[in-house]
Amino acid sequence: MVHIEGLERVLQEHAFFAGMDDGYRDLVAGCAANEVFHAGTYVYREGDPADKFYLIRHGQVALEVYVPGKSPIIVETLKSDDLMGWSWLVPPFRASFDARALELSRLVSIDAACLRGKMDQDSSLGYELHKRFAPIVAARLAAARRQLIDLYGHPEE
């Protein structure tokens, strides 16, 4: 007999869902799908509709800015246990960067329209998810500011 396993267990293993109530996690799992990206392929591109967000299970993804005629500028790389994409939370729901797999990467995508619908029906689910997104957004903002200040340079330079 073949046992088909849902994505609940996969989500349970990801850091984003650590300590989350099983009921909430199962609701999110209902909007989830496995996706695989080979090295060099794009998960999404700047300006694309932000209709999903992603949990990285394995691999590495670069967030990039496209520069005409030149190599893209990598602004951040994300690895397993990282979460990728929050443009789905913020109008106009468009991706702000290119996301390119640097190696074979296995992701779980969460369908934004599906999840927004569930959050509209159950505001406590929405609150739970926003509580988990806010620290990630804050940490990324702090990290981006530290990159701006040239952490490895000396003040007199």
Partner: peptide
């Protein structure tokens, strides 16, 4: 802190 497309390592602050 900064890299272009040929770099396959991490980009981000060391604290991460």
């Amino acid at each position: 802190d900064r890299a272009s497309g040929g770099w396959h390592g991490n980009v981000g602050v060391v604290t991460k």
